[in-house]
Design a protein around this nucleic acid. Structure first.
Lengths: 239, 239
DNA sequence: TAGATATAGATGTCTAGACAAATATGTAAT
DNA sequence: ATTACATATTTGTCTAGACATCTATATCTA
């Protein structure tokens, strides 16, 4: 390798590695050569290679796991945020196998904030659903849903069977619903969520708060979903 | 400084600097001590300090300028993307002095794409307005607007006086208009735009394409706006 | 006074080496 | 076959030093 003057060597190495990845010499999910191997190959110090890899990792092209190696990052799943986005459709459309696993379900009392979102009295009974969305066995999102208990009693059992909120709601006569609003924030995940998403604890998650309403505009679900920022990016579809 | 075991020293330095910035010991825009000074103060190697600063810069807390020093990054201006966002209101609401400078205005023929956006015949006359939005003498955005010439003849002169598209449109009987849609992409700026925005050429800009419509839904403006990603972040206000 | 030039000061890059921490793997014991 | 342990591999952190590059400032020159 001959280095061009006027540009840092680590940048040239970064570009070379990027080329190799783009050309499929290193494929998504595959392991790159070790830092020492690359250093020897490029005839530079290991730290110089590390600079290049740090830049690629910053750009989400690669992913580094201590003790294991550096891997080519799989493409992010685009998650459009429309009024009718459905998890299973998005994932299936990308030719991945969707799955949704219920972690916990219980009945709780509505807090003030959630009661307001769902337009129900404070303290009224709510169904609490906690689940993990998975595509090809890779966890993509952690969701918490609140639904009014008086309207959707027993939905947790149906959810376990259908593994889909959209499907479950059909049992209650709701064949269509839309998303009223979505708030998006970036957060450091709790230890629990990081664990469930199998994501690094120091990397942020994308957290959305959403309210789904039925055809007459009555709220049916308040949801908090945490997306792995390693694997998902959100698309806003116009406003 | 006593270092905690189990956490990298550079991370502890990062947190300490962040605390200092949060407490106003280092204020936005101010220069931090030099790397060597910080290294001496924390009793570590200069490279260790650099790691901390790199992390802060990555998080947009600081900004490094070679040969000058490290500075506390000024807060980004939140730019909400709603159907009725108006530049001057946003900026004034943040207690900054807004200004809009017209760079160029001419009459051009509608290209196919723009004609479609504005719902006018291909080749019909359009007014082309190019301007820079400034707050407190800091350039925030570069805008190109296309308006149908038959409806808004001479708007460029009015724009120069009022320095506001919203105001200018009032002369044409348009007292209200809304944004129909916004597409957002991230791009590397052209040399010209980078220069106008006084932004680094290798840093991306946020580019929006928007269509404004009047109360009856007729398109009145197609606009392409490039925001400096150093100074602006876009907020999506729900969908 | 204006402009060119030298100098000092600041960050950027590269090398070299030593350990630490996490992971993977092979081996021995059960 | 499984577990436990030791060992090797791989990335992470820290130190040390040398230059390069860019910027600001002082100084000299016309």
């Amino acid at each position: 390798m001959k280095w061009q003057k006027g540009e840092a060597i680590w940048k040239q190495i970064e570009r070379q590695l990027l080329r190799d990845i783009a050309q499929g010499i290193f494929k998504p999910g595959e392991k790159l050569p070790t830092e020492n191997e690359l250093a020897k190959r490029f005839e530079v110090n290991r730290h110089t290679v590390r600079s290049a890899i740090a830049a690629l990792t910053e750009a989400n092209v690669t992913r580094v796991e201590q003790g294991r190696g550096t891997f080519v990052q799989e493409a992010l799943l685009d998650y459009p945020l429309g009024s009718r986005t459905r998890f299973s459709q998005i994932v299936t459309g990308r030719h991945r196998l969707p799955d949704k696993q219920l972690i916990k379900s219980e009945v709780i009392d509505a807090s003030k904030a959630i009661a307001k979102h769902l337009d129900v009295p404070i303290g009224s009974a709510l169904i609490y659903l906690e689940s993990i969305s998975v595509a090809d066995d890779i966890p993509l999102a952690h969701s918490i849903s609140y639904l009014p208990q008086n309207r959707f009693k027993g939905i947790d059992q149906i959810f376990i069977e259908t593994k889909s909120l959209t499907e479950s709601l059909k049992s209650y006569g709701i064949y269509d619903y839309t998303r009223k609003q979505t708030r998006i924030i970036a957060q450091i995940p709790s230890a629990k969520v990081a664990n469930l998403l199998k994501q690094a604890k120091n990397k942020p998650i994308l957290q959305t708060e959403s309210i789904d309403v039925d055809v007459v505009g009555k709220p049916i679900e308040f949801g908090i979903t945490s997306f792995s920022s390693d694997r998902v990016q959100l698309l806003v579809q116009g406003n």
